[in-house]
Write a protein that binds this DNA or RNA. Structure first.
Length: 495
DNA sequence: AGTCCCTACG
């Protein structure tokens, strides 16, 4: 039999015109593809329900293609494997792979393995994923970063998996896989997520040594991870930033915000201020959030002169302070004992169209209480309610601490009872203070009454309350044994 | 994304 395709194009044309015998239709390429399509359609139609008869999927594949007298296609195998993975039929995947490896001759497309590796990963079958990755070459497939990345995703999902990464990378090298930027990215993401920023930096350096340029997103990610670390020094962060800038990294607003937040949390408000100066030098206008954080940092450091400068500067830059900015500023005024100025800010804010919120009032209430101006504190609390600003547990705690601190234990008791009736609270250290105070004034009976009420309302007394009551029980004849057992029993059930 | 309070035990 002469195959038309084996002949030169010119003679092919000659034969078509003058041939004496028909070319076998079954040997033409298009017919083979047609039959393979038919077989694939028949496989899809006659596929047994995988939930009940997964073992019949492979025989159906073989049968369908045999019927059409063609070899099975990679797509048909992918269909069978996808059907099995959709229904989590682990045990029936192995025979399909075995046949794909030993019987079939075609080059298996890599995406089939990437899909399977991901599937094993989702079901925590890390070892299956690794085994398949190592086997890929036996399927006449040249693996690339596609399958490697699929495996890296799986391994990066757990700490145990992450430990296997170095071995996999060495093996990938032997398998001829070239690491892509995406592969590095997966590793850096994973390391940052578990707080191993130092290793993430190593990987980034390794990436750049491999000829990849500086990646802005990776830089930002590492910087933000450094800023989330509790133990990293501010110097480290600035050092890293400087190094990256030398390599061409241009930090954006978000990067600088992260650095400023980090500095302020470390109590380095003046360093944070320097970051703002650096931003301006680079032509980036810090936003009101950056300024609010810096203002907060500078006030925490007690540099109120700088704080005023910072506030003026943001106004000069045309930024509009919002309630966060005002709250920070008012807090600064209160720390300088300028409570009157702080109270005046409330009306200024309202004139400027910025409504004071719960936090604004809490700051001022605390300042008034600290100054012993409890009557004005009560007035302000009333005022805030009138202005439609609700109170919260903090507000009550501030008031209770104020009443107690002023030495008005009677009023503190009344207030505490009100709180227990009105406020949803599980624990409040101020309650302990009241009980402690009562015991030390020889008022253990009142203390006991409040303690009972706390337990009644499901509020847990702290160690300080229990200790005070136990110590005063000796000198207080009215506390009987039954009272104690009656109290201790429900206490056991407390959260 | 940033403000008040501080979320107690080893």
């Amino acid at each position: 039999m002469v195959r038309a395709s084996a002949l030169k194009p010119s003679s092919k044309f000659f034969l078509r015109k003058h041939r004496k015998w028909p070319v076998s239709t079954y040997n033409t390429r298009w017919h083979r593809i047609f039959n393979q399509n038919q077989a694939f359609q028949s496989l899809k139609k006659s596929s047994p329900p995988p939930e009940n008869q997964p073992h019949l999927l492979l025989p159906t594949l073989v049968y369908s293609f045999n019927t059409y007298n063609v070899d099975p296609t990679p797509e048909a195998y992918h269909f069978v494997l996808k059907t099995l993975t959709k229904t989590s039929q682990f045990d029936h995947i192995a025979p399909v792979l075995r046949r794909l490896e030993t019987v079939e001759k075609f080059d298996t497309p890599e995406h089939i393995f990437a899909h399977l590796i991901g599937f094993y990963g989702r079901w925590n079958r890390t070892q299956d994923a690794i085994d398949l990755f190592y086997r890929i070459l036996r399927f006449r497939c040249v693996p690339s970063a596609l399958s490697l990345n699929a495996l890296l995703y799986v391994l990066c999902g757990s700490c145990e998996g992450l430990k296997l990464v170095p071995e996999i990378l060495l093996r990938s090298h032997v398998m001829g896989i070239r690491l892509e930027e995406s592969s590095f990215r997966i590793l850096i993401d994973a390391l940052c997520a578990i707080g191993k920023v130092g290793y993430a930096i190593d990987i980034m350096n390794c990436m750049m040594n491999n000829g990849y340029g500086l990646n802005v997103k990776i830089c930002s990610l590492i910087l933000s991870s450094m800023c989330e670390q509790k133990d990293s020094e501010g110097v480290d962060v600035m050092e890293f930033l400087g190094e990256m800038q030398k390599l061409g990294f241009c930090p954006g607003m978000m990067d600088y915000s992260n650095v400023i937040r980090f500095m302020v949390k470390q109590g380095r408000g003046l360093d944070a201020l320097n970051v703002v100066i650096k931003m301006k030098g680079e032509g980036i206008k810090p936003d009101v959030i950056c300024y609010t954080m810096v203002l907060h940092g500078v006030i925490t450091e007690g540099d109120f002169k700088k704080a005023d400068q910072v506030f003026d500067e943001l106004l000069v830059l045309g930024l509009v302070p919002d309630v966060y900015t005002y709250n920070v500023y008012i807090n600064g005024l209160c720390k300088q004992n300028k409570v009157e100025s702080g109270l005046m800010m409330i009306s200024s804010m309202e004139e400027l169209g910025c409504k004071p919120n719960l936090i604004t009032y809490n700051i001022l209430l605390k300042a008034l209480c600290n100054n012993g101006e409890l009557r004005r504190a009560r007035e302000l609390m009333r005022e805030m309610t009138l202005n439609g600003v609700g109170v919260n547990l903090q507000t009550h705690r501030i008031m209770l601490d104020g009443l107690f601190g002023k030495g008005d234990i009677e009023e503190a008791c009344v207030f505490m009872e009100e709180m227990l009736d009105k406020v949803l609270v599980r624990f409040c250290s101020s309650f302990d203070e009241v009980i402690y105070g009562l015991c030390h004034r020889g008022l253990a009976c009142k203390a006991m009454e409040l303690l009972k009420k706390m337990i009644d309302k499901n509020v847990a007394p702290g160690a300080k309350a229990w200790e005070a009551l136990l110590l005063s029980s000796g000198s207080e004849p009215s506390l009987e044994e039954t009272t104690w057992t009656g109290l201790v029993e429900p206490m056991v059930a407390l959260p």
